[in-house]
Design a protein around this nucleic acid. Structure first.
Lengths: 108, 108
DNA sequence: AGAGTATATCGCTTATCGACGATATACAGG
DNA sequence: CCTGTATATCGTCGATAAGCGATATACTCT
């Protein structure tokens, strides 16, 4: 190593490993245009929305179901059975949590 | 078509297709623990960091270089040549932009 | 019980990601 | 001009993601 122009010692981490993992995992859930679209549609609804989501984007029902599963696993949406339909709605608390974690990570 | 030629200060309440794509693409750049870690390290520095990033996480140099490229393509970091080193630093404007887009999308 | 409806899961194929070592590139200094 | 150093790119491989149609599941209503 030669003399450093850039700083080479790192400040203590603002996030712990677990939080890093969570941030990355939730970002992954957002990392697809169809899922952003789905979230957006749900967020625009006062209440909840059923399988009309399938019609709102040009994808097969099974594909949409999978995207919804990913969003649900990430905690971004809630699913309440109203058989035979399922009522999906955004989980604003979790969206805010992601936002908070993001801001905290990079001290915005 | 009703193309939106309004400037950003009159931003619509919802996202257009282009913004959805951008949000998803940037989320994708965040969707890996190593990249979150790299961003975090850079954000914690007042100035910029060189290839010591490679040592800070247990990955091969070529792998780290690829992660940095992804972050750079997403606009989250800036690279300034200080040969033979390269000075990386976070682009807070873009991080804030992502944050804003996210909040706007889901009306948090 | 049986039919109807909405959603979830399965099986499969193709595409993209993540990781690495090897090598190329670009510049500074001798 | 040659060498050393730091970063980027290439080629490859295994793993994961994304998409679909077909089918299973779960519940309601008749």
């Amino acid at each position: 190593m030669t003399d450093n122009i850039c700083v080479t010692e790192f400040a203590p981490a603002s996030l712990n490993d677990e939080e890093e993992e969570k941030l990355a995992a939730q970002a992954k859930a957002l990392a697809h245009p169809a899922r952003v679209r789905l979230l957006k549609v749900m967020a625009a609804q006062p209440g909840c929305v059923g399988g009309d989501l399938v019609n709102s984007i040009g994808l097969a029902q099974s594909t949409v179901s999978e995207h919804l599963r990913i969003l649900k696993d990430a905690g971004f949406i809630l699913a309440e059975a109203q058989r035979p339909r399922i009522c999906y709605s955004v989980n604003r608390a979790e969206l805010k949590s992601f936002n908070f974690l993001f801001e905290k990570s990079f001290t915005l």
